[in-house]
Design a binder for these strands. Sequence first.
DNA 1: GCGTTTTTTGAAATCGATTGCAAAGACTGC
DNA 2: GCAGTCTTTGCAATCGATTTCAAAAAACGC
Lengths: 323, 323
Amino acid sequence: MDDIARLAGVSKPTVSRALQDSPLVSDETKRRILEVARRHGYVVNRSAQNLRRRRTDTIALVIDFPHLPENRLSDPFHFELLGNIANALAVRQQDVLLCSEQSAHQGGFEQMTANKGVDGIIFLGQSGRHEEFRSLAKAGVPFVVWGAHRSDASYCIVGSDNLLGGRLVAQRFRSLKRKRAMFLGPRGHIEIEQRQQGFAEAWSGAVEELEVPDLSFVASRNAMLNRLDSGKSVPDALFAGSDTMAMGALAALRERGIEVPESCSVCGYDDSPAAIHHAPPLTTVRQDTRMAGAILVERLMQTIQGTPAASVLLPTDLVIRAT
Amino acid sequence: MDDIARLAGVSKPTVSRALQDSPLVSDETKRRILEVARRHGYVVNRSAQNLRRRRTDTIALVIDFPHLPENRLSDPFHFELLGNIANALAVRQQDVLLCSEQSAHQGGFEQMTANKGVDGIIFLGQSGRHEEFRSLAKAGVPFVVWGAHRSDASYCIVGSDNLLGGRLVAQRFRSLKRKRAMFLGPRGHIEIEQRQQGFAEAWSGAVEELEVPDLSFVASRNAMLNRLDSGKSVPDALFAGSDTMAMGALAALRERGIEVPESCSVCGYDDSPAAIHHAPPLTTVRQDTRMAGAILVERLMQTIQGTPAASVLLPTDLVIRAT
DNA sequence: GCGTTTTTTGAAATCGATTGCAAAGACTGC
DNA sequence: GCAGTCTTTGCAATCGATTTCAAAAAACGC
């Protein structure tokens, strides 16, 4: 920067100001400095800038990686969310530091903002880490969580209204005069359990639960095939915890010759990109990932500014298609 | 750090050394300093460290995001690769800065290492940016590319041997005495085109090409259904450019009652996690994403050290399963 | 017990920016 | 023409570490 200053015939502070487009520098001087900087391919040193500004314009995104045994974050929905968060951050000129659960966890998250040099953290998925989050919040670390709501959270959770989503599906099935309802999904996934809960509450009858080991197409298809081959009576209304699982179940139904939607209504969750292209187009509960990303980022920024942000329950709606 | 020094009764440099586990500090002093630092929850300021060390231990991962129209990076394979790269970097204590093509591109990649404060870049997918990469290499930016090989590259490309993969499939089909071969895949994806090319070369007969708009399950299923309903004679050997596409085609074949593998052999590419769980288990060409991640990172580190790294062509092998 | 070598420690410089404050220069109004 | 205001500019301090180099302390040999 000193060199650029010399070449432009000004002092270092003036160069710094010019590069920040500060109103303190006259337009003429600014133009000249920018020109010199461009010609010499000069860009400010990010590390020095971060140090002096005490701010990095970088956000950590903490997720579990797909290669892990449980295969979390493998769903197209997660991809969508990830992409939209990254985009919302890019709009605000923030960079994204990707952290796996483990790599981030070294020495606890408390020190992570200092240690990794980020201004804040976005957690994708909460999986029973409430206590951890509580103490993080108490320590004053700016962060937000994508996940299922809980009324007693002392930190900001952004998530869609899973209970409502489940209820909408139950209502739809009831209006179709369906009798034997089934829910398909894994155990231990809080958001999906809320969907099931909302569904069960609004259904007001028995809901058969078909458990699957994970969120994959294949696991759902297999579980459904097993169920269909068990000899038990076939459900006429199936609510799957995600679109991918719904598609797996649909494959099984098709293979066993069960007509959809004639003999069985099927509804997914997420409205992932594939849902509308599926044949037949999948009826599903929409989660707006674009809005989700934008709001997560907005709330995090607010928290970083020092104003604690309230949790957000995003609306969901039923997208009725062919199944 | 000054405070910790005072509390431990030593000077700042000694604290710095102790935290780096430098042999210059006596064990007794080190223990004491670490204890004080721990008790007060002190961690070094990453920004200051980066500035002084002239190194950030952070790598930029440049990818296209899944929400984009073309829907690139939506395949489980990409996920696997991403996760494994992140892991390989974590092992070396490197952090990952996620960049989309656009956000990274501001002002060209030349200044990105300085501008984003990263030590190096990993590009996932090359999609015709050869010239750009050439000039990057000339500018001395440390980076590596995951993608298809080209003999004239002046930079490090790591990728699996797509030509070999294609050849292996052709050989297999020939040994099964198949007659009518078909290749399924999109146009303009260099790696997949290489697979097709290797396949065609080793097949030594006509290869029907079925084009699909993208890499998705749905697109492949639809394309295949169209083809099967066209009245033209059905192929007895199908090579799909990825597992996801193979599964889409398999769904179509099943729906049209074509027995696999009796009437038609099917082979995918990637050996993605779903391939082995698929019913029937999918025959496919394996790409070792774990090794890919490790080698990408190793080569990048080498490049950062100042030693230009040679490209790597990773071996692929045919995994024969039920299709 | 004294010179030498080895091990520890600390003073001061440095990394490359940003910013508070004061001063210089340009513009007012009268 | 001069005091007062407004716009630009630059000096110097600062962000929080790391590292070089020299000095102090400890260990050693004889």
